[in-house]
Write a protein that binds this DNA or RNA. Structure first.
Lengths: 217, 217
DNA sequence: TTATACCAGGAACATGCGTTCTAGTCAAGT
DNA sequence: ACTTGACTAGAACGCATGTTCCTGGTATAA
């Protein structure tokens, strides 16, 4: 067993304890008890575990919640707890169809959910996702099978990437949106492609795109 | 207070309990106790909470771990527990340069990390990410600023999207990879574009692309 | 009515579990 | 040699916590 490189002032035992808490919490969905830690790392006495937990707490590796069972919390996980964002996948986005509406009331019933982190989407409210079907959005650098994450009620400003319904063409398109007086300029993401111009009330923005995710395989 | 619409066979109370457990677990990093649940939803008796918890367990909304403090686990969270994946961002990917090497030893020192979920990347080992710089990968439907998540040591098979170094051109490209006898076919993601053929030892796959993430704004 | 689920409350029990107390070992510093 | 600090051990204390028992209410069906 290769000795684990000791991190900043952690004894072998403390290293083990920390590692065990991490694994246990991940696997069981709850922190371990003092005694569970003890038997896992081979300490018969709860006071020794207690001692080491306090040491770890003082060094900032975890937080203890006094007089609370399983009141241990690993510092790294503090962030993670607020990090996860669950987004409903409301349907597909397709050139020939309107995007499904975002309705906060019915969203709960969605049976398709996606978990994202704040590293991917900045906010967490009023998000929903759509799966791209077909090759029709390649000029937006969006492929068949991609997932677009959208936000609904945000007011759209110039330069935002939006999903827009072009009324007279009866099609949905993903473009950057610029309102220029009476007309709207829709700019493809691909810089090699020319912008398109429409009458302002011919363009109905359906939502603002905040992220696009493509999974290979 | 609008009465919450009861889901499949859940009483008002059970709905409340479920909701409370969810919130508590997310905020505190551990499941609540029976008594904490009781006082949160206004039940003075632990047996009533116990009764409802068992009812919820029977309906599959949660799992109980007998004789274990805070031994409640919401079914939806079973997945979440193993869900978070932290990926190092090792540098940029640029047509004119080799991609940074993936070295498991030095990766720990990376100061740029990305947290993803298993909904985005299937596995969790040997992953790293690169930021795309420049417009040179538009034929792979990859834009300036995108993030590509790659896996290193996986053996590459035909049809995989890879980052490949073309030796005589001295450039990196993202394409689907097909080894066809002595030559390699590199197929752009954009179906409108023609494949390219190279001598097999003129193509050095640097890694397999598992996901592409684009953040707008 | 009776029977049967389902739901609720109060109290008590046994164990779980964090904490504390006492005591010991070992290495480094003076 | 003496002290000091870091670490370990065993045992005991007392509240926390899951569980169980007993009781009673309400609705539905026979």
């Amino acid at each position: 067993m290769a000795a684990r490189k000791a991190k900043k002032g952690l004894s072998e035992r403390q290293e083990q304890i920390l590692q065990f808490i991490r694994e246990y919490a991940r696997k069981e969905g709850r922190p371990p008890t003092v005694r569970e830690i003890g038997s896992a790392v081979g300490i018969s006495s709860t006071s020794v575990v207690d001692y080491n937990l306090n040491a770890l707490a003082k060094k900032g590796y975890l937080t203890r919640n006094p007089h609370v069972s399983r009141g241990i919390r690993i510092s790294e996980m503090l962030k993670q707890a607020t990090d996860l964002i669950t987004v409903p996948v409301l349907g597909i986005i397709h050139a020939g169809e309107l995007t499904p509406p975002f309705d906060p009331v019915t969203v709960d019933e969605s049976d398709d959910w996606l978990e994202l982190t704040q590293d991917i989407v900045p906010q967490s409210q009023n998000l929903y996702a759509l799966r791209v079907e077909g090759d029709s959005m390649i000029d937006a650098l969006v492929n068949d099978g991609d997932i677009v994450v959208m936000t609904s009620n945000e007011n759209i400003s110039n330069g935002d990437m939006v999903a827009a319904w072009i009324v007279d063409r009866e099609e949905t398109t993903l473009k950057r949106f610029y309102l220029e007086g009476e007309r709207v300029r829709l700019q493809p993401a691909n810089p090699a492609m020319a912008p398109m111009y429409f009458d302002a009330h011919n363009v109905q923005p359906q939502g603002k795109v905040v992220a696009i995710i493509r999974q290979l395989n």
